[in-house]
Amino acid sequence: MADDLNELYQQVILDHCRKPRNFRVPAGAYRTAEGRNPLCGDSFTLYLQLEGDVLHDISFQGSGCCISKASASMMTDLLKGKTAAQAQQYFSQFQTLVTTGAMDEEAMGKLCAFAGVHHFPMRVKCAILPWHAMLAGLKGENSVTTEQKP
């Protein structure tokens, strides 16, 4: 197996892809945002529960490739309890990570596993789809795609 592949599909990514975390519809009130890449067939719904400025809970449902599903799973783990402003910062760091491979290990922790995506420009849109959906949810918009501009 080629090195690039092992870098793309790191164990932690395969694990989250097989057993996605926060893969549920929350109880109580929530807002939703759709992330869809119809060309690939990736389609997710994100559920956000905001308490004031804080993401009290964030979860998702849907189907997609390993990269997009693991990205949604690890993003929801990371952002629970964070503020909207922090979520925006993480988004910027994640975007740099998957497009350039440059990582801030202290800030991103396990998500550094996605650094390998930058070797596969066609897959950047998969990794970043749930993140764009999350941002759309925070802004109160309800659907995004990353097929035109990742």
Partner: peptide, 26 residues
């Protein structure tokens, strides 16, 4: 349990060019 895009990405690393997606047939 394996999405078409993952199949196509890995096949490509073995030199095999496939297509994955909706093939303009949504």
């Amino acid at each position: 349990d394996i999405h078409a895009h993952d199949v196509v990405t890995v096949a490509d690393q073995f030199g095999v060019a496939l297509r994955g997606g909706h093939h303009c047939n949504q």
